[in-house]
Design a protein around this nucleic acid. Structure first.
Lengths: 158, 158
DNA sequence: GAAAAACCGACTATGTCGCTCGGATTTAGT
DNA sequence: ACTAAATCCGAGCGACATAGTCGGTTTTTC
């Protein structure tokens, strides 16, 4: 799961789209103006979102985009996976699982990254567009706080 | 909290260092050979780790690096924060907190990213080098699984 | 004095990001 | 039928981070 501003822009745009969903589709120029993102860049992002089946387009004047599913059925993880390049191959995946398993001393951190990836994906998969719109993040906040306190000394984390 | 291969390399090297800690310090050429990372690149990473106070150096032949603290007192989050550039400024931080707070429609996703950042940091801060060495990630695994199942339909996540 | 190591700084190749530009296609309104 | 609004599409570009390389210097042990 890659995390870049690209994914962030896509989520911002999708939240905007969900927020302004009416009978008429929402045009990218409206989103561009509201979110201060370049129109051409948005076009590129929405091309990917459309190919991923997250939005549907309506061409011609008065056209624009609509969510393919309801805002409570569209998960943030899907948006990010749709726009970001597939995750840069780690040394592990280059060597294949076999290479990682056979020589464990070279890849002691494998489990750690896998765990972190699962963690991030689980978090983003648990949040829908509707959650973001309605700011329903309290439960996640509580969970994160609990985790942070699991081991005491929160050493100088800058 | 930025996540790149740079941080991964640093953690790999630090785990290797912790694993091979003896009376004598560990030389970077040994780590470079074992982990298949370029020596010069390792030097750059360890310069930062030293400045961050995570390792101590011994110069001259037979020299090398030692952990500044014990492996159970060195957290993965510290390593990553030491080597990665400060996180790329988001639009939010550019505008300052005020800009984000005053016009909320532009920044509906602010809480989401903040939450995610907390989440990642909390996870990496809960793991020490010793945990990685001894593969003590079971508890984290359980937590991640619980989160993933919090909301039912794990939609096509590629 | 030789050699092993940490230190240091400059340079480079590659790739991604965020974006621009110039179009083409489709379609609603007149 | 014409115009304009919108999606679609591909090429290219400047800036930046990554993952190095290279060539040295300093320190210290033998």
């Amino acid at each position: 799961m890659k995390l870049s501003t690209k994914g962030r822009y896509a989520v911002m745009a999708m939240v905007d789209l969900a927020r302004h969903a009416q009978a008429k589709p929402v045009s990218l120029s409206d989103i561009a103006a509201r979110q201060e993102i370049s129109l051409s860049y948005l076009e590129q992002l929405f091309a990917r979102l459309r190919r991923a089946g997250l939005v549907k387009s309506v061409r011609g004047p008065g056209g624009g985009y609509r969510l393919a599913r309801g805002s409570h059925e569209t998960r943030v993880s899907e948006i990010i996976l749709a726009v970001d390049e597939p995750i840069k191959a780690t040394r592990c995946t280059e060597m294949g699982v076999a290479g990682c398993r056979t020589d464990r001393s070279k890849c002691l951190t494998h489990d750690l990254w896998e765990e972190l990836g699962n963690h991030i994906h689980a978090f983003l998969n648990s949040v829908t567009l509707r959650d973001v719109l309605e700011r329903r993040l309290a439960t996640h906040l509580a969970e994160a706080a609990a985790l942070a306190n699991a081991r005491p000394p929160m050493v100088a984390a800058n």
